[in-house]
Amino acid sequence: MLLKKLTEASGVSGNEKEVRDIIISEIKDYVDDLKVDKLGNVIAYKNGKSSSKIFMITAHMDEVGLIVTDIDDKGLIKFTTVGGIDKRILVSKPVLIGDSKIPGVIGSKPIHLQKKSEREKAIDIDSLYIDIGTDTKDETSKYVKIGDYVAFDSIYVEFGDNMIKAKALDNRVGCSLLVELIKEVKDISFYGVFTVMEEIGLRGAGPAAYYVDPDISIVLEGTLCFDVPKIDSHLIPTYINKGPAISLMDRTTIFNKALRERIVDIAIKNNIPYQYRKSSMGGNDSGRIHTTKEGSVTATISVPCRNIHSPTSVMSKKDYENTYKLLKAILKEYEKGEFTDGI
């Protein structure tokens, strides 16, 4: 299964190769042009019916993770975070290091030996380390180098009522949707772009947009979901099982109103549930895309993911299916030549 394959691959920002290779092998027979640019973005083009406007759909390939900064005399590995990770989730998690995926665990002082005051504080990253079972610097150095990327070790699990647990749902869910679209949709012109380094400052999207120079873009994402009970509804960014989340604004973009309304209309017309992403926090590749060159119009459609940026993100298959339906409906409108009119 594609989403399983994608989420279990390692693709920490700046080291997306494994994910990129999977995506290329999946789509290469379904596109008319395919290139990997100088930063590692995958830029695919499908030729077919087109409007006068250049249409691009993007998803970022990278995930948050860790990177090795030092190996100490006892062979323990020091690291720092890549992308936004709540340091409190790190302790006692298994990880995989480097291209050969050396297994390790993130250890810390046992609770018995901590003072009460210590226990009340979040553990600082400087006091965490990765243990791969070696005892000396020399031994560790046989397996691990400074600069090796570290991904969470977390397998894809289906559970509950149509739910999925995996790491890196942000944004392999977007990658999976885009791969499936590229494979299924025929005879429509669009660029499918898989970007690098979104999590460390939207670094890949600008250069990719500079190359494609789109008029209209849809950015696919896995987004914040925190739908626990007893919270005011305006503080809940998205809900599980309420369908694709359409962004209003975030720190990087005020999403084009006409395009957003068109997408909502299409959802309504096709009986696809949808919701707004209510939070204006966070940002995504759209920030770079819509301000590149002379500027363009963007929308973001996301699958809600609980516990985002952790090894145990959770999403609903129904949301995935509804997001996919919505994207297909949008492309159908595009094929009719109506989607981009007046935008």
């Binding site: 920002s13 700046g14 640019d37 100088k38 930063l39 973005n41 990177i67 090795v68 900064t69 720092t80 975070t81 890549v82 992308g83 400074i146 600069g147 380094m197 460390i200 400052g201 670094r203 890949g204 600008g206 250069p207 990719a208 500079y210 190359y211």
Partner: peptide
């Protein structure tokens, strides 16, 4: 080791135009 965009001219160069290694 620097995980993200770094605080030198290398940061600006990398994301210029279509991207510069």
């Amino acid at each position: 080791v620097a995980p993200g965009g770094i605080g030198t001219d290398a940061n600006a160069m990398q994301i210029t135009r279509e991207g510069i290694p």
